[in-house]
């Protein structure tokens, strides 16, 4: 009894970890599974195989959907990061009429339920004459739109924490406005931008509701998974899931290692905070990857 009392926290901790990791481990285990037959609807471990890893594109439509999702994710990330970073600079560094209301409106896309956003986007596209042409472009526009808020909020908080005396110091030390931006402002804001980009990619990659409403005949990876989940699920989906898991873990661990090395070197709190943004975004993308599977 005393033994149990002293270990109760430890046991609870282990149980929580088990609770978290069991679903993830199922994905990894299933990626090595061989189904009894092509049409089998029984989803349980049958026999060990490396086939799924060696031939991931047995169903070409899966790889096509995956490629499309990655493509949309990268483009949406690029667009949202550039636009969002510029907007964040404007919101922090310049005062203009409507700035404070803009600061509030930014949160709207994050707060609105996805189904509302998705249907209103659909209504917009249809009334703008996109009916029948829904597809890659409309998905991309929608993704950039909902990623934008996240980018602005992330970069803005990073920028707001950056005192403008550093930029004044740079100017005082003969840096032109361009040099000041590239030598001082950008390197200091970069961790925020990187975090925002990772977040954007994971949001775009695993979005289903908004995408489904605005996709037309185009199929993204989450839509493919949803589609096949009612028929036979190809085990290769688990391969994709495992790869994404590994990538996410690498990002998080990499950020953490760098972070630790820095804190050990200087015991200063600010660089630690800088990397935690990246780590958090990495964790988000790992969660995103698994959600898709």
């Amino acid at each position: 009894m005393r033994w149990l009392q002293s270990k109760v926290v430890l046991i609870l901790g282990i149980l929580v970890l088990v609770y978290t990791f069991v679903p993830i481990s199922v994905v990894v285990v299933m990626s090595f599974n061989k189904l009894p037959s092509e049409q089998s609807k029984i989803y349980r471990f049958n026999q060990f195989t490396l086939d799924n890893w060696l031939h991931p594109c047995t169903d070409p439509s899966m790889c096509q959907a995956l490629g499309r999702s990655i493509e949309i994710g990268l483009l949406a990330t690029l667009g949202a990061t550039i636009l969002g970073t510029l907007a964040a600079f404007a919101l922090v560094r310049h005062s203009f009429v409507g700035r404070s209301s803009t600061n509030v409106l930014i949160f709207l896309p994050m707060a609105a339920p996805e189904i509302v956003m998705g249907s209103s986007l659909l209504a917009l596209f249809v009334s703008a004459g996109f009916a029948g042409q829904l597809g890659f472009t409309t998905i991309l526009i929608a993704h950039i739109m909902f990623c934008l808020s996240f980018v602005i909020v992330t970069v803005r908080s990073r920028l707001a924490g950056l005192s403008d005396t550093l930029e004044q110091a740079a100017m005082d030390l003969y840096a032109t406005p361009q040099q000041t931006f590239w030598k001082v402002t950008f390197p200091l804001v970069f961790p925020g931008i990187l975090g925002a980009a990772l977040l954007s990619f994971s949001l775009s990659f695993d979005d289903f509701i908004i995408t489904n409403l605005n996709a037309g005949n185009t199929t993204t990876f989450p839509m493919y998974v949803w589609g096949v989940s009612r028929k036979t699920i190809p085990m290769q989906i688990n391969v994709v899931g495992t790869v994404m898991l590994i990538v996410s873990v690498l990002i998080v661990v990499g950020g953490e290692v760098r972070n630790r090395r820095r804190t050990r070197a200087l015991a200063g709190p600010s660089p630690a905070r800088r990397d935690s943004v990246v780590a958090a975004a990495g964790a988000r993308s790992s969660a995103g990857g698994l959600e898709a599977v």
Binding site: T165, Q168, D172, L173, P271
Partner: peptide, 20 residues
């Protein structure tokens, strides 16, 4: 004259050293 063209330099109150 622009600050980056003046032969004047400043030691700022909180030093404003570049952290990176």
């Amino acid at each position: 004259q622009k600050p980056y063209r003046r032969p004047v330099n400043t030691v700022f109150q909180n030093y404003a050293l570049f952290p990176h």
